[in-house]
Amino acid sequence: MDSIFTNAQLPVEELPRAASVTYEPLARAYLNVDLLGLWLGRLAILFIFLVYTYLTKDFPDWLRWSIAGLWGFLLLASTVIRYFGFKIKGYAVRQHDLMYRRGLLFRTLTVVPFSRIQHSEVQQGVIERQFGLARLAVYTAGGSQSDIMIPGLKQEQAEQIRQFLSQKLAADEEE
């Protein structure tokens, strides 16, 4: 393979490759958590909509059911996308950075070097708690798009990674 950047200070071929990493998958239970959250949220909105239209006088029947049908279709579509998207989601902790990959249709790989982390925290929602799962949020100074949020980690595991990150940060500052 020929060199891509001719004037780089070192041969790019010899750099560690982000693309050749094997990703750690998320906990299997996270798929259930994700789908459960999706269905509960969407069905609640559908329910409120239906109650509202029945209370409104003369709300046309065809409009109510076509909106509800469209909503149901979108819900099924999201379910399928999340189901297959689950396998794509994965993270990797390298020597100097944290990577997270997601997205079925639009696949995104975000890499945050440890030295650029502002702070990190472990978060847990109501449903996640029932399954013993947690999510790890890593914030940088680059705005919300540059942050990483890894869901579907076992709670101890999320804590472990967060501990590791803060130890790294402390070690870097001492240098």
Binding site: F106, R107, L109, V111, P113, Q145, S146, D147, I148
Partner: peptide, 29 residues
């Protein structure tokens, strides 16, 4: 000065071996 780097590929880009790179800094992307 870069804070984080991301590569995004839509299904359209994946078929054509293309990608979009975003570089985030604390002063703009």
């Amino acid at each position: 000065k870069v804070q984080s780097v991301s590569i995004t590929q839509s299904f359209y880009q994946r078929r054509r071996q293309l990608a979009t790179v975003q570089l985030f800094t604390a002063g703009g992307d």
